[in-house]
Structure formats: C-alpha cells, structure tokens
C-alpha cells in the first residue's frame, strides 16, 4: 500500500474514504468536495510531489447500483510513485465534480473528454464543451452504460443529422475574445455557449 494514503488520512481525515490495492496499484477514494484541496496538497507537499497527471477518466459499472467513478492517475516523476485517486458520483444524480485544471493544465482536454463521453460536469473548467462529438450532438453521452452501442437513432437519422451539420462551424471572433473571461460571463450566455450556439452576443441581437 502506498504510504501517501496514511499521510492523506492524517491530513484530511474523513474526506479520505476507503483505500484498496488492485494489481499492485493503490487506489484511494476521496470525497467530492475535498478533491481540489487533496490534489493541490498532493502536488505541492514535498514528501508527496505528485507533479504529473497521468490521466483523467471515468468508469461506469454494469451494475447499476454501483456509483460512477471519476479516476485520476497521479505520478511523482522524481519519486517514481503512482497513486490513483477516485471520486464517486451517483449516476442518477448530480454528476458534478471540481475541475483540476487549476492544478494541472494537462487536465483540460481530458476533462472535456470525460464530459463528452460521460456527461460529468467539471466545475471551474475554463472551456467545458464537447471535444470528440460535435457540439450539436443530441444522442447523449456515448460511454454511459444506458447508451446503446449503435446509438439511439436509426442510421438514416444519424446520417441526416451528420450531413446537416455545418462543416465550417467554429467559435466566432466574439467567443474567442471572451473565452479567456469565460468565468465572468452571465449564466445564460454560458449556457448558450455550452449548447454550441455561435456568434450570438447580447449586443448583436
């Protein structure tokens, strides 16, 4: 068992859930609200020094009773140690977890992918929108277990929707200029941007 687990328990107490070992890798469960603190602590504490984020992904089990897990792979390059941190979410409930982009820039696209595939909302992510599927994709979140392998619509409908998409759709100039100030935007504009509407600012309407 990785000694970081005991150090985590000593520092964060009840925010650290169970820890277990699988195939030689240590897995530690962290309460959802404490995630960002735990991650920043793991990176910045010299004895831990988990400076490298290997992966962010999610797992949904076939057993519907089991919670959906968001999985973070951490690594300390200097100590050559690995730690896997998991956060449990209720798949029927609120799929929201704090974004770790402030800690590791590399989480940016990985979290976008987890959002795209599982529908997990990463709070505080600078630009959370679909990355692999197109932005007006309406069938759902493909890697969820209730999503059928061939999609929800008939093939003809899928072809029709795909051909109706605009191949040159992109962020407008306005969106580009506000992308950096995304957090300060009003909620309805954020919502519109998240739905993939382009180039509609309050001024232009």
């Amino acid at each position: 068992m990785n000694p970081s687990v005991d150090a985590l328990r000593a520092t964060f107490g009840t925010a650290i859930g169970r820890a277990l070992e699988s195939c030689g890798d240590t897995i530690v469960y962290v309460a959802r609200d404490a995630l960002l603190d735990v991650m920043a602590w793991l990176r910045d504490t010299p004895e831990q020094a988990y400076d490298y984020l290997v992966d962010v992904t999610a797992v949904e089990y076939r057993d519907r009773e089991r919670p959906l897990e968001v999985v973070y792979g951490l690594r300390s390059l200097a100590r050559r140690a690995d730690l896997r941190v998991k956060v449990e979410l209720d798949p029927q409930g609120d799929l929201t977890v704090n974004s770790v982009v402030p800690v590791w820039r590399g989480a940016d696209w990985l979290e976008r992918e987890a959002y795209d595939m599982f529908g997990i909302t990463f709070q505080g992510h600078p630009d959370l929108r679909r990355i692999l599927m197109w932005e007006t994709y309406t069938e759902g979140f493909p890697l969820r277990k209730d999503f059928p392998l061939r999609g929800r619509f008939s093939r003809a409908e899928q072809v029709r929707q795909a051909l109706a998409a605009h191949p040159e759709a992109h962020y407008s100039m306005e969106e580009l200029s506000i992308a950096e100030a995304y957090e300060e935007l009003p909620a309805d504009m954020k919502e519109r941007l998240r739905r993939g509407e382009h180039g509609k600012l309050p001024d232009s309407e």
């Binding site: 699988s22 195939c23 890798d25 290997v54 992966d55 797992v59 076939r62 792979g73």
Partner: peptide, 29 residues
C-alpha cells in the same frame, strides 16, 4: 483493475482495464 503504461513512440500509452469478473472489460481506457 489494472493500468499499464508503456513507452510508445508518441509517448506514454496507458491501458486502463476495469473488470467485473466477466470475459469483457467494464472499461477499456
């Protein structure tokens, strides 16, 4: 579950497999 990273030409290719005891993985990442 098991994670193995290997040094691919492009970088670290990680394969993360989660099993629930059946012959098909729950998650192949």
């Amino acid at each position: 579950e098991a994670y193995v990273g290997i040094e691919n030409p492009k970088g670290e290719l990680g394969t993360y497999l989660v099993s629930d005891g059946t012959a098909k993985p729950v998650r192949w990442r």
